[in-house]
Design a protein around this nucleic acid. Sequence first.
RNA 1: GCCGAGGUGGCGGAAUAGGCAGACGCGACGGACUUAAAAUCCGUUGGACCUCAAGUCCAUGCGGGUUCGACCCCCGCCCUCGGCACCA
Length: 817
Amino acid sequence: MVDKYDPSIVDRKWQDKWAEDLLYKTNEDNSRPKWFEMTMFPYTSGDLHIGHWYAMAPSDVHARFRRMQGYNVLHPMGFDAFGLPAENAAINRGIHPHEWTMQNIENMRAQLKTMGAIYDWDREVITCVPEYYKWTEWFFLKLHEAGLAYRAKAPVVWCPSCQTVLANEQVVGDGYCERCNTLVTKKDLEQWFFRITKYADELLDFSEIEWPERINMMQKNWIGRSEGVEISFALNHRGVKEKELRVFTTRPDTIFGVTFMVLAPEHPLVEKLTTKERKAEVREYIAQARRQSEIERLSTDKEKTGVFLGSHVTNRLNGEKVQLWIADYALLGYGTGIVMGVPAHDTRDFAFAKKYDIPIRVVIAPPNWNGEELDEAYIEPGIMANSGQFDGLPSEDGKRAIADFIESQDYGNRTVNYRIRDWLISRQRYWGAPIPIIYCDQCGIVPVPEEDLPVLLPRDAEFRPTGESPLLHCESFVNTSCPRCGGNASRETDTMDTFMCSSWYYIRYASAKYADGPVDPDNLKYWLPVDQYTGGAEHAVMHLLYSRFFIKALRDMGIVDFNEPFVRLFNQGTIIANKQKMSKSRGNVINPDEYVVELGADVVRAYLMFIGPWEQGGEWSDDGINGISRWLNRVWNLVLNGKGATFSSQPSMDVAKELKQRLHKTIKKVTEDMERFRFNTMLACLMEYTNYLTKVLETKLVGEADWREASNALLLLLAPTAPHLTEELWNRIGESYSIHNQPWPRWDEEFTREDQFTLVVQVNGKLRDKVDVPVSIGESEARELALNREKVKAHLDGKQIAHVIYVPGRLVNIVVK
RNA sequence: GCCGAGGUGGCGGAAUAGGCAGACGCGACGGACUUAAAAUCCGUUGGACCUCAAGUCCAUGCGGGUUCGACCCCCGCCCUCGGCACCA
């Protein structure tokens, strides 16, 4: 009998030994290909739950696999440490955000260490320390210098619970705060923005990255590029100096169908374009639109409402007068804030025209149209009608023809519109990187000089949820002198969106302690870009989009020489418990610690990977994890029993041959599954291999050398998944330390080939018999064999054979009438 | 409404250049060991018909189609999850 596997001893023993030996210390090494693989760093919210393990353990397994394959692997870890929860803890519990965050980091780091990952803690990155945020500020200055950071007054999204503005990307569902799920409102504020829209087109190019199609799609939708034409309508209104109104449309082919025009209620020209007698009604409508929440206003099923302004513009293509209206379905921020109303060919315009009795003129004839009125908008292509010289053209050609005409007459031009807005990065909160800007009465907006960085976050701010930045009330922080004129000046008191911190943290891993810049240029060149990134899909249009923007901006500044931060991306799914997403409020959060203590880190690692395909997520089950625990215990017993076994001096050649074949097939399957993150089937394959080896050992027909090769391979293939268990066994069977420095096993295609296969015999496509045949079998031989099988004959009785299908290496299908 | 992913035993899931549906694991049932239990080990386990065996039929969300042959491809639906949504 061998002694029992006790993970509580084994885990600790090797974690200590690896740390002591600096086994996972990562250096730049030009003799091996580099592999930079990382997982999205955790937010410092408190405890590590099983969801964190689900994100991190499989990625560690993959990184370990690459390491054994001979890559110089960088697989770092850090903490996303600025943000609202720390500040809320300060408000609710009177603990300073810094203390709260640092305690959480201590806690989470200790938990992470129990996982047995290959993190090199010397490269740890924490975003809330001055050594880090100094460079976040520095990047802000660089973006400002490049004209990519600007300050502007705009209607911005406000979270009443978080008491701060949010980026558009942080609004989820039907207008809820991404962090706290509160319904958001709007405010007019002067804020800092990053000009991400400048890169809208380039961000639509995914050709250099291997990302899940889903994520590319989400980014594409978010950017929302649409090609169209900006068309000018002639304006002649007393007291208005503008002589035209420009509208954006993707349907220039419908220009002859314009029967009204809609301005957004907030449009600056509304006041002037309203006739005296309509003023009261228009004002009332605007006031009412302002009162409405964003949700009500954006609701698709809401009935269309609007008010006639009393004034008109002229459609230059047909000289017709067109009524001007305001309606809240026109959005100020999209296009020009003015929509041309073509009720016959736009669903919204149709509803609006019906309600207010505005003419509906068909200009794109639906199939078989006889000039009758439409019951609903016809939005498909068709043949143009009522469109002067363009009548009879297919509408797709008409789009081009009218765009050409408009450009030739100087009535407008082709243009592109985007849904994406510039990235709002100001936050009216304390716990973030200060925006390194000073306001001077004489000099205006003055960037803090580089040599004065970092602008330190003061410790003595007061935390009250007032809706204003706590720094505003911190006089020692606010009051400063102007770097230009030396006069009295005040600092910017908003802090940066934490997504700014996470837009560049992966760069910092390359040289986490470098003091002369955000990154050591040599290390940047060596490690970046990230070869493999893994994380949840919830960051598709936030972190992942911002990081791409950031790198493109840095490239244009000459700081980096690549175009994309993350070459490959893998999205793991979500782990759920009791059919529901884990959350503290539901009380179904699984804490990994107790399972680690009881069953060992390796069991938890392996179980998470076995639940199902990583990209699909899965449900945690206490029963399921026991299965993995049993398996790893069987591996333990198997390897140690093999070590103490007495082997046959006259081993069976057949057993040896089959063993070799199974070995090489297993190596192949495991390697291929590892490459593609197919962890569940990889483990299934290793279980089968374990079961097979158990039987082989029992036969006592195997030679010692063959056994050792087969058993060692099991440990090597299992090493990335179960690093502690395999290290202990590797040591016990007398192999040299460390198993994690061994090369990954290779397979020989020659040995994976079978010399027999199971020939399937079908009659009319139904399985009737199976027979083992040599792979060398020929077609006529196989047909003959199939036709003479007793079970097959029974089904051929009295029937006529029409023909026989033969698929080499697979089957014979006899087709009868 | 639009875009994307998915729907397979009691459960998690295998299997797609169209070729043995249900690998592996869980659970359940039976057995061995034990004074007993736990643990461990061995066996059975999609459904129906049949006393058993042999065998036949049914079965991958639903309805059609293509094919010698469909979980896989095509057409039309239903449901679940994720994203976007008055974007002109």
